[in-house]
């Protein structure tokens, strides 16, 4: 049984979470969140993979060719869009936090105000 791709998933997740926990800068923390979310792409595409199968595009190949699961690929697309939206919003909040408190260090932000 090949489990390497799924180990990669949890590795990416762990690296990203470690970054979030130890981060000293909000923008760095947001980038770490992107890393965490990247693990879901690997998971989704890994779940749908079939050994020896092609991409689910039947433009120039016969329809009965074995192809990987298109549903998880569509979900990965949704994932990317949501990530872009979440990142944009978090960056906006970081800008406002910096304006209001003059710092982007999560530690200092906690001490400033709840």
């Amino acid at each position: 049984m090949h489990i390497v791709p799924f180990v990669v998933v949890v590795y990416i997740l762990a690296v990203g979470l470690y970054g979030i926990v130890t981060s000293r800068h909000l923008v760095h923390q947001i980038i770490c969140l992107i890393v965490v979310q990247s693990s879901t792409y690997v998971l989704l595409l890994g779940v749908g993979y079939k050994t020896g199968a092609v991409a689910p595009y039947f433009f120039d190949i016969p329809v009965h060719t074995p192809a990987v699961d298109p549903v998880v690929q569509a979900l990965a697309l949704t994932d990317v869009v949501v990530e872009a939206a979440v990142t944009a919003l978090l960056l906006a909040l970081a800008i406002q936090a910096h304006k209001r408190f003059g710092t982007l260090d999560p530690q200092e932000l906690v001490q400033l105000k709840g």
């Binding site: 049984m1 090949h2 489990i3 390497v4 791709p5 799924f6 890994g46 779940v47 749908g48 993979y49 079939k50 050994t51 199968a53 689910p56 039947f58 329809v63 009965h64 192809a67 990987v68 699961d69 298109p70 549903v71 998880v72």
Partner: peptide, 23 residues
């Protein structure tokens, strides 16, 4: 993970069904 089908052994019916009928 030990109880899941490994990488490359896609088990689900949905993807296969859609690949067959979508075009």
């Amino acid at each position: 993970l030990a109880g899941l089908p490994g990488f490359g052994n896609y088990p689900g019916p949905y993807g296969d069904i859609i690949n067959r009928i979508a075009v």
